[in-house]
Amino acid sequence: MKIVPHTRPALQVVVLGGGYAGMMAALRLAPYARVTLVDPSDRFTERVRMHELAAGRPDVTHSRARLLHGTGIEHLAARATTLDPDARAVHTDTGRTLRYDRLVYALGSHTTPGGEPGERLYTAETADALHARLCRRPGTLAVVGGGLTGIEMAAEIAEAHPGWKVRLLTGATLGPGLSDRGRAHVRTALDRLRVTVVEGHRVAGADAVDADAVLWTAAMTATGGLARDAGLDTDPATGRIRVDAALRSVSHLDIYAAGDAAAARARRAGALRMACAAALPTGAHAAAAIAAETRGTAPRPLAFSFLIQCVSLGRKDGLVQKVRADDSPREAVLTGRPAAHFKERIIRFTLTFLRLAAHRPGALRLVPWIG
């Protein structure tokens, strides 16, 4: 009599969100589980290029089917409408219900605008609509927010649309996370592009800004409503899911969070800010933790350190700011055209990492902060 060996059914994993963190988590999990990626778009968006899209770059997306080809991952083009942790189920707007053994919550973040987005108020998420407005009659544009997103948007738009008068308004100091040398270079670049910088000017909302168009970059919030409504422990200030060192929800251990949706911490970095720089590593780590579970081993704590901040200042200028492990700035900077070229290479590498995860996952072990 032939004995048929017993085989355990494959782990069912649902990944919510197809951005940097969600794509990396899904791709890294594919060899170990049956993975369903839930995202309404059939295109993967390079969110770090939204300032380029606003300025006139025709497209910042890539075929999701091509990135997932050959991995066995099912892409469900839908939005998750309800998360039921007790039943381990996700309900979608297509009417389909997905059951899971483990879930990765990677729905990212969004800008919280100071008003209702429309003809006059824009955010990074509506960069294509902003570009359409910029191509019509020139006028005045106010960029609200002096962080890296606001700086990149102001510089890119001022360079590509010189007919517009661009102001950057910030309630604090310009580039608060930059060193003195880094901030000085940003000021010089913005002045060269004729961007007026107004510091210490807190704006209550778009209606309080005198401009033909307002670009709001001042507040990012995790897309965590689905998690909060499902009873997961979330940070009320940011909407991020509270997680342990392995990126498991502290209230629901079969749910992991990655990217901007996770209130993640690492021993050397401390609290991780919302950024692509943290999205890829946390997506990879959530996948590694789930894979460890399938092998019956305890997931390792997240090990992550910040290295640099890269800032675009138009197509021919940039800033690469060296930072400590906790993201605080060092004085060392790279500026000008070399910095612009360096940032472009970094952005291209993000897609390279996703392709490696799909087709040569072993190669990612050579990348310390991902592998």
Rank of each mutant, 00 (worst) to 15 (best):
T7D: 07
T7V: 15
A10P: 12
G22C: 14
A25M: 11
A26D: 04
Y32R: 07
R34T: 14
R34D: 08
T36Q: 13
R43T: 08
R49V: 05
M50T: 12
M50I: 11
D59H: 15
R64K: 15
L67F: 06
L68K: 11
G72F: 04
L76F: 03
A77Y: 14
A78G: 07
H91F: 08
D101R: 00
T111H: 04
T112I: 04
E116W: 01
L121Y: 01
A124T: 10
E125T: 07
E125K: 10
A129C: 04
H131I: 01
H131W: 02
R137Y: 08
R137D: 14
L141R: 01
E156W: 00
I157C: 05
E159H: 10
P176C: 05
R194K: 12
A213S: 11
T223H: 08
R228S: 13
D235E: 08
P236A: 09
A237H: 15
S249Q: 03
R267E: 07
R268H: 10
M274N: 10
A278R: 00
P281R: 08
H285R: 02
I290W: 00
A303D: 11
A303F: 00
L307C: 12
V323T: 14
D327G: 05
S328Y: 03
T335Y: 09
A339H: 08
I346V: 15
I346F: 04
F353E: 10
P361M: 10
A363Q: 08
P368M: 10
